[in-house]
Design a protein around this nucleic acid. Structure first.
Length: 427
RNA sequence: GGGAUUAUGGUGUAACGGUUAGCACAGCAGUUUGUGGAACUGCGGGCGAGGGUUCAACUCCCUCUAAUCCCCCCA
């Protein structure tokens, strides 16, 4: 038979192999207790959502909605989308489950896969993993500061320093219109010098023009009006207080008047955790902000909220790049069970179960028949003892207990073996 | 969407326009028949896909696919 063609994982999607699992486990093991301590509760939302959830929240003019969504049609004709981010689904769930009657703020976190159809590269996959935290129902500046502080703690708790918080305030529906107008006026006079995509942005998503990477546009953006100058008193105070909190908590931050974020639902505080050495490519490891309008946009009642998401793929990569040692949480097998002959093989399964119940980490290799290869495996596993049950032993009702380090062995009655092993492992 | 580089067994690699595509590691089995790190022997396993150029292509050309990185943008 001709060999069948092999099938690869879809572009930008990858397998996370057993050897790698410990990194992921480690991150969650560190993160979850911290989040719980801060009062966040875990929840999960579906991987597919109505497409409209994202077009309405993330925004029509954004890259995510415009070209990065995996959208499919069901047999019934509904349009569903693989979630490209976690805030909108969380808010949808908050509204749908009537969580607004809970004591506020409602603090939620989640972790799982997200999907965006863009060009894969370092730290960027079409299926990627995010850990997100959202505080719903509290508009105070302290919440923004708490979230940023929490993100900072999380990274440093993982041994990852070297991130700066880039922060800005983009105002709210009260003061942003004036700013947008000022920006429009500013750019209109310079429209000829703009790059093609910025000419489009001028109409669709003017704030994005500030972080355009084209040299010409960068030059122009330098002298563009800044959001902070147009904040109304409330927004200004809010922003100022957030920064004061960060000062107090000694979270290093950089004011970045050009930070605007790619999603439409943000108001006031926006921030990104960027590596200090980020020369060209920006690869935020955490980013988020306040979204006081989103709950209304999705049909809930007026409720302020704030949150962030952390890129787990990037965190894991950073752990590896920085050679941060991860405790190996996998229990090491202490005992190997070797068998010779059919009768012994049958009995060994029962013994294996007895050992498991006794809490003894045991490995065996039932598929292997020769004592030699079984012992080789036992040795490679680094077990303390090997139990050998051969033809003779299975008839006698005994078993050989071999001490691998000492290379000595003795024969033990079958009914005593579990206790004997336990006793010796303790010593 | 645009650009650069790459694509040989599980992994890392070598070679060549032409007869059995080489090596290392890993895997499996064995080295006189019931005992383990070494050594030795053997076995399985490969030229990403499809077109062309050529007497002949893994080797040259094109397309596709994928990977890596960059632009864009984000986590």
């Amino acid at each position: 038979m001709a060999k069948a063609k092999t099938i690869q994982a879809p572009k930008g999607m990858r397998d996370i192999l057993p050897e790698e699992q410990r990194y992921w486990r480690h991150v969650l093991k560190k993160a979850e207790p911290l989040l719980e301590f801060f009062g966040f509760e875990k929840m999960e939302t579906p991987i597919l959502e109505s497409t409209e959830l994202f077009t309405r929240s993330v925004g029509e003019g954004t890259d995510i909605v415009e070209k990065e969504m995996f959208t499919l049609r069901t047999k019934g004709g509904d349009s569903l989308t693989l979630r490209p981010e976690g805030t909108a689904p969380t808010v949808r769930a908050y509204i749908e489950n009537g969580m607004s009657v809970r004591p506020h703020p409602v603090k939620l976190y989640y972790a799982g896969p997200f999907f965006r159809h863009d060009q894969p590269q370092k730290g960027r996959y079409r299926q990627f993993y995010q850990l997100g935290a959202e505080t719903i129902g509290d508009g105070s500046d302290a919440v923004d500061a708490e979230l940023i502080f929490l993100g900072h703690k999380l990274l440093s708790g993982l041994g990852l320093g070297g991130y700066n918080v880039h922060i800005n305030s983009i105002g709210d529906s009260n003061c942003r219109p004036a700013y947008v107008k000022a920006l429009k006026d500013y750019y209109k006079n310079r429209i000829k010098k703009l790059c093609p995509s910025c000419k489009v942005r001028l109409k669709t998503n003017i704030l994005r023009m500030l972080d355009c990477k084209e040299e010409g546009c960068k030059e122009i953006a330098k002298d563009a009006p800044q959001t902070v100058d147009y904040l109304d008193d409330d927004c200004k105070r809010h922003f100022k207080h957030v920064l004061e909190f960060l000062d107090e908590a000694k979270v290093p931050y950089i004011l970045n008047p050009h930070l605007v974020r790619g999603l439409d639902y943000y108001t006031r505080t926006v921030f990104e955790f960027l590596p200090e050495e980020s020369a060209g490519a920006q690869s935020a490891v955490i980013s988020g902000g306040r979204y006081d309008k989103l709950i209304e946009m999705l049909g809930g009642s007026k409720t302020p909220a704030s949150g962030w998401a952390m890129g787990l793929d990037r965190v894991v990569e950073a752990l590896k790049d920085n050679n941060i040692s991860i405790p190996d949480s996998k229990p090491k097998p202490k005992v190997f069970l070797a068998q010779l002959g059919d009768a012994a093989k049958r009995k060994s399964l029962v013994l294996f179960e007895a050992l498991r119940r006794a809490g003894v980490e045991t490995k065996s290799s039932l598929g292997r028949d020769s004592i030699k290869s079984q012992l080789r495996i036992a040795h490679r596993l680094g077990v303390k003892f090997t139990l050998i049950m051969g033809q003779k032993e299975s008839l006698d009702g005994t078993i050989i207990l071999r001490d691998m380090d000492a290379s000595t062995q003795e024969t033990i009655p079958m009914e005593k073996i579990v206790d004997e092993v336990k006793k010796r492992l303790k010593a």
